[in-house]
């Protein structure tokens, strides 16, 4: 079997395409962060980039999660003390809000500054 010039050209071009797609998919800067909402009945992922109000069913009723201007907050929840509503809004990866009584967890994943790390060791 003889490998010819264009075999190598094609292999390099294909490898380049793979590298390009990997950069596009995995580089933190190029991906907008996502809002992950975990409720009693499952998990939903929403882009933080488009505004909306999501209603999540829980054992007490519906928790309303509002996404506005790349931040998310719990707008209302049928829980007794409204700790979750008092939690304010979140906007950066790793931040989260929870309404324990109604079993809703809201967190932000991925995205531009994943670098809010306290310490790292190799």
């Amino acid at each position: 079997m003889r490998i010819k010039a264009f075999d190598i050209v094609i292999a390099l071009a294909a490898a380049g395409l793979v590298a390009l797609s990997a950069v596009s998919a995995y580089s933190p800067g190029s991906r907008s962060s996502e809002l992950v909402i975990k409720g009693r009945d499952g998990e939903w992922v929403y882009p933080l980039s488009s505004d909306r109000v999501v209603s999540v069913a829980g054992p007490l009723g519906d928790t309303l999660v509002a996404i506005e201007g790349k931040t998310a907050r719990i707008k209302d929840s049928p829980c007794p003390n409204k700790t979750c509503v008092a939690g304010g809004s979140i906007s950066r990866p790793g931040q989260w809000l929870a309404c324990l009584p109604n079993q809703v967890l809201v967190r932000i994943e991925g995205g531009a500054d994943d670098a809010d790390i306290d310490a790292a060791a190799y």
Binding site: M1, R2, I3, K4, F6, D7, I10, A11, A14, L17
Partner: peptide, 25 residues
């Protein structure tokens, strides 16, 4: 197209890689 255009300078290895990556893309 690859086999007809650059006939002498490509083997089945390159043709096959091109096909696979084009199909997947």
């Amino acid at each position: 197209a690859a086999r007809k255009v650059i006939r002498g300078s490509v083997s089945a290895v390159g043709v096959s890689m091109l096909g696979a990556v084009a199909s997947n893309a």
